[in-house]
Design a protein around this nucleic acid. Structure first.
Lengths: 337, 337
DNA sequence: AATTAGCACTTAGGACCATGGAGTGCCAGG
DNA sequence: CCTGGCACTCCATGGTCCTAAGTGCTAATT
């Protein structure tokens, strides 16, 4: 059905449309690309492509524009991920280098990705479900309050205040602290529930209320509703894009972290580079955008995902190259800490 | 120069322009407000107001629009801060209630403020310079690395990794930990440098390199370049606004946290409700926006600031009311933790 | 059978113009 | 000092026309 030349035409249409932002006609294609055939032939190919639903024309006498399906074919079969220039690679290294803690690493990554792609960047914090406990600290704040600080091997530091306790003795806190660390250090967060099950029983009765309170907070807020954090950057780049949807809709969708997280979650895991185009995104606000994402992690251990959001009319090879490169470097940086 | 009626006219112009987003003419004013005079009289007043620079007309045969100076006069002398409805107050309380930690309190505050004002909300984290040390924790991560966690009374938890040490003994860490806490707990962060000056001298020689490394990180990254964090929300509301500047410029300016922090810093301190109108903001990107900000704190102890950014044509009384109310509630919530 | 040239057809968008309406400034009279 | 009246200005709106770009179809060519 679609011979090589038709595919070449589709590729040319996508490339030109992305570059010029204007519907592209048969004449322009013949001029700018060396397809070796005349505009008339290209026109014939275009009707075939249009019948198959890969391209469409905004109105009768306009050029053609790729559809979501057209972009999909382009991404799957007609393009190759474009590696970054060595200048860009160096920029990444120096830029991600000087970060002092996880927050700063993530913040810099998101800025970097936004700058490289000129689109909206999204970076998810290393998932708690993929982290191990490195240390648990209990800090007495007042007679009835204790702060719990959980430090993971991925660098995340989460704190919660446990409130409304009866007079808490310093010894009880210290005992519980040691016990928690003995039981939990090195464990996956997902394994924490099992590991703490029989802890209260090992304590003297006086200390059990405290232990119960601490454990319930730990389990509930950190394990069960496993909090995923996400950071956005480069929203200013939205202004230069023009969606079919309204800018407001896109901005609103972006502010819904829950939605973004779900979408990221639906995308390919691990080191996979995944592209979701237009209506493939199962959310109204992203219907006229594409999302390019990749997982990042330490070694082959996936931690979380990052990506960019832009108009469906985007430079897929370049964007995919940038996302992949940043994901890899981020993994390296995290590994080297 | 400006009698009461002229001021009333200015007030009416501002109110109508804010409501309708259209230049307002003498006839409309006479109809919609009970000024008790004819359009012709109003016209005369308008030329006076225009000569003084309070209003201007986009073109010869259009109505009048307030200038920055006009808004300034309106805010200073012609309006009163509008208290929130009781429904809104209750919304604030319930919304800010269920937050579990400082991050969530700040996140909720920023969403709330954006929703109430339908503009872009900005909330600064409690300033480190206004915080006291509540606890310092040292966690050995590996033979050559230690993580320092600093917890303040305002709920902030900052962590830094200290790297490149020689073999660190568990005892050394424990000794240093106790010593740091004895020396620092309860101290203002700004007083930390003085308080740690002679600490290394009190340690056995073997432990001094570790102490020096920890202290240098502590001083440098937390005290000297005292990190201020800031959070944005409601940028989707930007789409509905129309600035004279381009949307992109405003978005870019908003992403520059440093700029925002400086601007907030230039605004009135403590419980003061401050308004910066248009060109009063010393940054290009905010030339066509107004910023309404207030300090928040516990009791009369200021902690940091929050505010909203919107078009100069904004509902000042309403916005000021919302900002003031949210700042107060935030203080109360923080005090009650 | 595939490609190409030629041609008639469609349509968006720009230029041009006319017109109506909103608003002004000014003047003379109350 | 206020007001009604009036001439003037200018923007916004809508209509018309025209051009440029691009198409689809057919007949000729390879």
């Amino acid at each position: 059905m679609l011979d090589d030349r038709k595919l070449a035409v589709l590729r040319a249409i996508v490339e030109d449309y992305v570059a010029t932002k204007e519907p592209v006609g048969s004449k322009a294609l013949a001029d700018r690309h060396t397809l070796g055939v005349s505009p008339a032939t290209i026109r014939n190919d275009m009707v075939a492509l249009e019948e198959e639903g890969y391209i469409t024309q905004p109105h009768t006498s306009a050029g053609r524009v790729p559809t979501d399906k057209g972009y999909r074919l382009f991404v799957d079969r007609l393009s190759t991920v474009k590696p970054l220039s060595s200048a860009e690679r160096r920029a990444i290294e120096t830029f991600l280098g000087g970060a002092v803690d996880l927050d700063e690493i993530v913040a810099r990554t998101v800025r970097l990705l936004a700058q490289l792609t000129r689109q909206v960047a999204v970076v998810q914090y290393p998932s708690l479900t993929r982290s191990c406990v490195q240390h648990v600290e209990l800090v007495p704040l007042a007679a009835q309050r204790v702060m719990m600080v959980l430090i993971t091997d991925t660098g995340r530091v989460e704190q919660r205040v446990i409130d409304g306790l009866d007079r808490v003795g310093g010894d009880s806190v210290e005992t519980l602290r040691q016990m928690l660390n003995r039981a939990l250090v090195g464990k996956w967060l997902t394994d924490v529930p099992g590991a703490v099950e029989d802890l209260p029983a090992q304590l003297p009765p006086d200390d059990r209320p405290l232990a119960a309170a601490v454990l319930s907070v730990l389990l509930e807020s950190l394990v069960e509703r496993h909090e995923e954090k996400i950071v956005l950057g480069g929203t200013a780049n939205l202004a230069a894009m023009d969606f079919s949807a309204s800018l407001r809709d896109v901005l609103e969708a972006l502010e819904e972290n829950v939605v973004l997280l779900r979408l990221l979650g639906e995308m390919g895991d691990a080191a996979m580079l995944t592209v979701r185009i237009g209506a493939e995104n199962s959310h109204e606000g992203f219907k006229s955008t594409s999302i390019v994402s990749a997982g990042y992690g330490i070694g082959d251990q996936p931690l979380a995902k990052l990506g960019v959001v832009g108009p469906t009319r985007m430079d897929y090879p370049g964007t995919m190259g940038a996302v992949r490169a940043v994901a890899r470097y981020l993994g390296q940086i995290l590994a080297g800490r």
